[in-house]
Every structure is written in structure tokens, then in C-alpha cells.
């Protein structure tokens, strides 16, 4: 199969800001989620229109186009109407930085091979280190 390799396209792709891409992804993924939920409920646009209490059918087309910049209020209204979650409010913090002091004395050094924790410690710090950063 013939494939297209274009330098202009490659250079445009390289110029795309990851944050702007993430914003586009979010808008389109929300639209896709709404469309999937409508399909699951076997709803037409008029059903969603009625459920959210709007009267202009073009607003649904706009929501499903993936170009709409939703307000929080609209997202909450859609969550209620479609029984789905569009705003993740309970997302756990996946990354945390813990800072603590580690005191290494002669006794500790003797037991350093006694545990997995000490294996990590000996691999990552020297006896001069007093602060260790762990990312979990």
C-alpha cells in the first residue's frame, strides 16, 4: 500500500503544542462519551434536548461535534441526564512526593542488606545524604 510522507505535514505535527492537543482530546472525548451514552439509552437528539430542558436542537449538534468548550454547569446537567460521569472529581492523586530525614548510623549500615527497603536505600543514597525523595 502506498503511504504519504509529507514534510510540511511532519513539520506541522512537530509544532503542535501538547497542551493544545490535550484540550482538543478532552473536547472530543467528552463529545464521544455523550454520543456513546445516547446510543446506550437509544436516545435521539430530541430526547437529550428534552432531558436537559433546552429548546434549540442545534446545541446538541454542537455538543456532539467535539468543538464545544463545555461549562461545568452544562457538564453536570449532562451527567444527570445521561447517568454518566464527565468530570472526574474523585481522581486519586497518583503522584506524591514524600520528604523525610534518614539517619544512617553505624548500626543501620550493618543491617542494610536485611530488607528490601535497605536495598533501595543503599542503592540511592550515600552516607552524606540526609534527605531522600521518594515518588510513589
Amino acid at each position: 500500500m502506498k503511504e504519504l510522507n509529507n514534510t510540511l505535514l511532519s513539520s506541522l505535527l512537530n509544532e503542535i503544542d501538547p497542551l493544545d492537543q490535550a484540550k482538543t482530546d478532552a473536547k472530543m472525548e467528552i463529545a464521544a462519551k455523550i454520543a456513546h451514552a445516547m446510543k446506550f439509552k437509544n436516545w435521539k437528539k430530541k430526547d437529550l434536548l428534552k432531558a436537559v430542558g433546552k429548546d434549540n436542537p442545534s446545541i446538541i449538534t454542537k455538543w456532539l461535534s467535539g468543538t464545544h468548550n463545555f461549562t461545568t454547569d452544562t457538564l453536570v446537567e449532562l451527567e444527570h441526564a445521561l447517568d454518566i460521569e464527565l468530570i472526574s472529581r474523585d481522581k486519586p492523586i497518583l503522584q506524591a512526593t514524600l520528604k523525610f530525614q534518614v539517619v544512617i548510623n553505624q548500626e543501620g549500615m550493618k543491617t542494610e542488606k536485611m530488607s528490601y527497603f535497605n536495598d533501595i536505600m543503599t542503592a540511592s543514597i550515600s552516607t552524606q545524604s540526609r534527605t531522600v525523595r521518594f515518588v510513589i
Partner: peptide, 19 residues
């Protein structure tokens, strides 16, 4: 904007009707 939308379609959502 067009290129970003195309990338989202190809990698995340597929070519949904509404787009």
C-alpha cells in the same frame, strides 16, 4: 486545529458521526 482533531480521531475516539 484540523490536525489536532484528526489526531484525536485516529488515536482516541474514531471517526464519530457527530464530528
Amino acid at each position: 486545529d484540523i490536525i489536532r482533531r484528526i489526531k484525536t480521531i485516529s488515536n482516541k475516539t474514531g471517526a464519530m458521526d457527530g464530528f
